[in-house]
Each structure stands twice: as structure tokens, then as C-alpha cells.
Design a protein around this nucleic acid. Sequence first.
DNA 1: ATTGATGAAC
Length: 549
Amino acid sequence: MLGGSLSCKTANINGTLLYLLGKCRSMLELKKLHAIGISFGLSHEDSFIYKILSFSALSNSGDIDYSYRVFSQLSSPTIFSWNTIIRGYSNSNNPIRSLFIFLKMLRHGVAPDYLTYPFLVKASARLSKQESGVSVHAQIIKTGHESDRFIQNSLIHMYASCGNIMWAHKIFDSIQGKNLVSWNSMLDGYAKCGEMALAQKVFESMQERDVRSWSSLIDGYVKDGEYREAMAVFEKMRAVGPKANEVTMVSVLSACAHLGALEKGRMMHKYIVDNCLPMTMVLQTSLVDMYAKCGAIEEALLVFRGVSKSQTDVFIWNAMIGGLATHGLVEESLKLFKEMQMVGIRSDEITYLCLLAACAHGGQVKEAWYFFESLVKCGMTPTSEHYACMVDVLARAGQLTTAYQFICQMPIEPTASMLGALFSGCINHRNLDLAETVGRKLIELDPNNDGRYIGLSNVYAVVKRWDDAKSMREAMERRGVKKSPGFSFVEISGILHRFIAHDKTHPDSDETYSMLHFVVCQMRHGCRQDNQEENLLNDTSIEDDLILF
DNA sequence: ATTGATGAAC
């Protein structure tokens, strides 16, 4: 048929198919329409092929590899088709393919245009590969596109993602007529690099701010560990800024989780519901994590069970399994892992880390070995965290020699957290000889950690090697190791209280101390007779540990 | 047809 022009009948079919493609919701539907199109001879009709390409490359329910297969069959694809594929891969979980397609495009003698570059820059940003970003940048200059604002904005983001904040700033400075995206990209760049003072400065210099500006600032504070500051910015946003969206709330919930601020977290949950924000998987995962970290495991489960199984992904299962594990609900967390496998969600390295943590809390050595081995069997490589967790399991269970051998046989260098786990194990199980060996290595490895010196000093004190005990404390002073007081938070009626040892400035200090004394007396009464050794090994007495700030 | 953001374990 055809030779370039469509018959009246196929033109109608094409029109109908184009309309239906516009309504298409899934790859299955798309493939059916594609098949019908082919059977009517439309496989080279531009408008039809474009629709097939863009849906499969760009839609959320698309399939970029399908798009690429269709693309490969075109004899001389237009720049539109090349751009669609490059864009599709830049958003995929395999962004490096964008760059490969770009090379292919150059080899085919097709010149990239002003739309090609933002996708390529984005692919480099997502890869955090500065080398490829720089080559793309060079191409941009070579082809005279360096003053395109879209391209400049994407370059800011790329350099910031690659950790080169100086170049990001250079690009930002060079932009004539910066727009909101330019400012937001610079702000986000600083926030991502932990330069919060500069991020704050950019934020304050902005003439106009949208939800992304606020979200970037909040998220920056969260990533920087400034959770209270993050909450303060959110409160300000509520008062004078735009409405928060689901991305803002993910950061805010993370701040609540780190602060253990349950009441605040509940209020944020309510904010999400009241403002009808879309309940994405990411948001639900954040809620599960927040409730679990704030000690409200029942509420975490409630959110988790509210998600339909077919929608779940590995993130939310990990959050729930990990939450149960840290709550000491070992059986439940192992049961949930089985359920996860039944649903057909592939577990990853983090899943195994959560499971090993569960085993450590429950003293399940056999299960831990089983998980450690299945991790390897599933083709994953154990990270130093997996090894540390495994050492923790063995050390807590008192299998100190096995733990020590395990460390010696690892294919990687021992880390401070592994030796730290073994050290606590030695102390709890009274193997003070091994404690000395491990403690000495630990100080070598982590010479700026005050706790390591004090721990070893206490071991010497127990075995009455007073000189050694003293010399550990002296070594610490001599090396100028800062003694950092540990502190903790508790939230009561939505207000956060901070506790540090030996400070009594809190207004309710007296009352809290008398309650503390009462509790300690009760505990002592019910405990075995305590002796000096016990106290020394725990570094300080219970009162000292809990003293109010 | 373009640029800018978010989750799990230590």
C-alpha cells in the first residue's frame, strides 16, 4: 500500500489509534495498540511511532527498553526520536545508556540540539559522574549552546551532584537573567553539599520562593543533622510559605524520626491527610520509619498494613522489618521477611542488615549464619556493615573466639564498629584478656573517640592494673581527644527535652531526680547484689548515666 | 518534547 501517502481508511485507523494511545495507561494496552497499528501498516507512520516511543520511554508505566527496540527498527530516526530515547534513559535506573545512545547518534552524523543536552546533563548528574558531565559540557560549548538557560540550570545541578560546588557556582554566576530554577538549583546544590550557611544565604537572597526552595532548605538541614532547625523552617513555611507537598513531608518526617518526636510526627501525618497530599510509597515508607523510630511500632504496622501488597516495594518492607528488629520483636520481623518473600519482593543488602540486627537482638546465632550465607548465595557481596552485624551477633551471644576468628578471616579490613561490637561482647562476657587486645586495636583504629580509652581504662581498673588504667586516661588527654558528653532526647506533650549527664538546669530537674532515685532503688531491689566490678565495667553508675540536663 | 526534590540499615 502506501508509498508515503495513507489511504483514507488507514488515515482513519491512524487517527483512532492516536486517540486511543493518548488514553493509554499501561504497557499491555500500548502493546495491543501497537500490534493493531502494525497490522494496518502503520509501522513507519511518524505520528503513530512517536506516540509509541514517547509513551514507552517517558510514562511512569512505560518501558524504556521496549521503546528502544521500536526505535532500533527505524531506518533514519529524527532528532525527536533520538531525544525521546535519550530522555527516557536519563530518567531510568540505567542513565548511562543515555550517553551510549548519544555516542551512537553522533556516529550516525545526527547533530544534537538544545533539547538533547538537558537530558544528557541530567544523566551525568544521576550517575554522579563528573567526567561524563564535563564531556557533555564541552560538547555544549563546542556547539554554541552554553547560554541556553535550561542547559545552564541543568549544569548547576549536575556539578553540585558531582560534589563540585565551585563549578556549580561558576555556572550560576554566569547566567544572565537567572530564573527560579537557577536559584533553586544553586540552593539545592549547597544544601546537598552540606553548606547550610551558604544555602541559607541563597534562600534569603531569593526574590521568589516556591515549594521546592523550602523543601531543599528543609532537606539540607535534615541531611546535616540539624533536625530542630529543619522543623523550625517547616513551621515558618506553614506560616508564610507555600503549601508543603509530599516531598517536603518526607524530609519533615525524617526529622521527626531522628528527634523521636512522636507527637510532632503524628501532627505531620495529620497534615498530610488534611491537605490531601498524595500518599506515595515514599511517603508511606517515611511514615512507617517515623513511627518505628519514635517507638510507636503499632502505628508503624498500621500504616504498613494499609498499603496494598501489590503496591509495596523493597523499601517499605525494609523499613518495617528493621523497625520490628530494633524494637526487639525478632520473631515478628523474621515472619515479615517470610511474608515479603511470599509476596515476591526481592530482598536486598539492607534487608539482610535488618535481619542480622534482629538476630543480634534476639540472640539467634543460627539464624544469623543462615542469613549471612543466603546473602552470599543470592549473589550479594557482604559489606562492612554486614560483617559488623555478624560480629555483634556472635559477641552478644558470648561466642567471642568465633567472633575474633570471623574478623580475622574477613576479606576486608576490620572497622571500628566491628571491633567495638567485639569489645562490648568481651566486657559483657568477662573475657578481659581479649578485651585488652581488642581495646588496644580499637584505639589504634579510632584514636579520636573518647569512649574507647575510657572503656579500656575500665577494663584495667577491674583487673586492678591501676597504672595501665591511669595511662589510658592520660593518653587520651595527651592526644587532645575531646570528651563529648552523650545526650538524649525525649518528647513530652510535643515538647522536646534534652538530657546530658551532670547538668541540672532543666526546670523539672529536682522532680525528675527524685523519680530517678525511686526507679533505681526499685531496680536495685530486684537485682542481684551489685558489686564494684559491675559498676566499673558499666563505666558509671545508673544514676550517672541518666542524670538530667 | 527541555532544567530543579523525597524513602530503608549502621
